[in-house]
Amino acid sequence: MKETVIQTDKLTKKFGDFIATNAITFSVSKGEIFGFLGANGAGKTTAMRMLCGLSIPSSGTASIAGFDVYTQTEEIKKNIGYMSQRFSLYEDLSILENIRFFGGIYGLSKQQLKEKSEMLIHQLGLESEAKKLVSSLPLGWRQKLSFSVAVMHEPKIVFLDEPTGGVDPLTRRQFWDLIYAAADKGVTIFVTTHYMDEAEYCDRISIMVDGKIEAMDTPSKLKEQFAAPSMDDVFYQLARGAKRKE
C-alpha cells in the first residue's frame, strides 16, 4: 500500500447559501497522476484552492502531504507546486531570471539554484535561449518551462490547472512526458483538463458535477461502469445532467 499524500473527508465550501464544493471525499497516493475533471462551475477551482491552502474550508477535513488545511497552510505551501494556464511565468524576465526568482521564493540555496537551473535548462534543451525573455518563447515551451519551475523545489504534490490549454498536440504530448517523468520520481500530480484524451493518461480520475464527486476510478473502469466507448462519453453522460451551469 502506497503512502497517501492527499486525503479529504467531506470537504465542503459554502459561500452564503451556495455550496460550491459539497462534501467531497477522496484520497490520492504518492506518485499517482490524479485527473480532476468537471464542467465549468462544478466547483473544481474552489476545491483546488482549499487543497492548496489558499482557502479555508467551511467543514470537513483534508490533509495535504500530512498537513492540515485549516491550521498548517504555510507548511502545505512549502510542500506543493502550482501551475496554471493563466499565470505561469513573468514574461518580462528572462528564462534564467524566472528560474532563479521562483527558486529563491522556495528558499533554494545559491548552490542549489545554480545546479538546478543548469539542469533544468539542459533538460529542456534551452541552453541557447536561457537569456531570452520568456515572452519570446512559444506558448508550448513556456508551459513546459513553467511546469519544470513548479517542480524545481521537489514538492510532494504538483497542482496543475489546465496546463495544456491551447497548446499544440505535439507539445501537449511532450508536456505529458514531463508529467510522467515527475510522477515516476514519486511526485504526485493533481491535474485538471478539458482534453478528454488527457483524462485517459491519468492513473485515476474524478468527475465533479454540481459540487459533488459523481464518479471516481481508473479511466478503463469508468468506461466499463458507464458502458461508454470513450472518456468523452463518460463525461458527457455525467455532466449533461448538471443543473448548475452558472
Binding site: 464542467a39 465549468n40 494556464q85 478539458h194 455532466a239 451551469k245
Partner: peptide, 13 residues
C-alpha cells in the same frame, strides 16, 4: 475567435 477555449466538453458540444 476561439469561442470554446476553456469551456468544458459538454458546453463545447
Amino acid at each position: 475567435d476561439e469561442p470554446t477555449t476553456g469551456v468544458d466538453p459538454v458546453s463545447r458540444k
